[in-house]
Amino acid sequence: MTVLTVVTAPAAVLGTVAEEVDPADPEIVRLAQDLIETMRVSPGCVGLAAPQVGVPAQVFCVDVTGHPKAATTHGTFALCNAKIVEASRWRLGREGCMSVPDLTGDVKRAARIVVEGRRPGTGEAVTITTDAFEARALQHEIDHCAGKLFLDRVAGAHAIYRRKVYL
């Protein structure tokens, strides 16, 4: 597996709608593995999408295990071609992103979602029902695949903040 370089805004790929992929394609399987490896070595990272490493493909990984805001967790997983099929209980919450390293922002997201996607490798159809922080992380990564950053969803300039640096 390879640790990939994360691109930052204003890289054009971050504003591009990613292409659907064949989850059984060996290149997509390798990409999913590399995304997981990159996420694991990146402090504070709980999700990473292919567009964030310069690849306009609908693939991402998530792992919120051990995060203090997580309620439900499904461990480490990757999904291809994921779509939100149900969303409810909208809440405002602070978000950050490796592709926007200096800022955070308040974003309204569903606190309960159902997502359908396919597993890399097998192509098996998967339905994930989740809530709280994991739901927020999934929506954030699905947004990356749709060419959106969290900055596209903040209420306005008053809801954007300089990221705090903890030494």
Results as ranks from 00 to 15, higher is better:
P51R: 01
G96Q: 09
T2Y: 11
A111D: 14
T130S: 08
L151Q: 07
V46S: 10
L151F: 08
L138N: 07
G66L: 09
C97Y: 01
A71H: 14
G121L: 03
A132K: 12
V21P: 00
I160S: 11
Q52Y: 02
P26K: 08
A82W: 04
E116V: 14
V13N: 01
G121C: 05
W90Q: 14
L149A: 03
A159R: 12
E37P: 04
L138G: 07
E124W: 09
G47V: 08
M39P: 02
L79C: 03
D143H: 09
V3A: 08
A50C: 00
D106C: 13
T73L: 11
T104Q: 14
G147D: 07
V165F: 12
P51V: 00
Q139E: 11
I84W: 09
G66T: 09
E124K: 13
S88A: 14
G147Q: 05
D63K: 02
L149S: 01
V29Y: 00
D25Y: 00
L79V: 03
R94V: 13
T8V: 15
E124H: 10
L35W: 01
T38G: 04
R112G: 15
D106I: 14
E95V: 09
A24E: 14
I128C: 03
H140K: 09
T127R: 15
K164P: 13
H144S: 02
A110E: 13
V62D: 03
V41C: 04
M98T: 13
Y161G: 06
A111P: 06
P120N: 06
N81T: 01
V126S: 06
C80W: 02
D22K: 11
V115A: 11
G117L: 00
P10K: 02
G54H: 00
A70D: 02
T2V: 12
H140T: 08
V3D: 04
G147V: 07
G93Q: 15
A78M: 10
G44M: 06
V59H: 02
L138E: 07
I160D: 12
R109D: 00
V62M: 04
M1Y: 06
A11F: 01
E27G: 10
T38L: 06
K69T: 15
P26L: 08
A71F: 13
S42A: 11
V115N: 06
K108L: 15
V154P: 08
A57D: 03
T16A: 10
G105N: 07
A70C: 05
V107E: 03
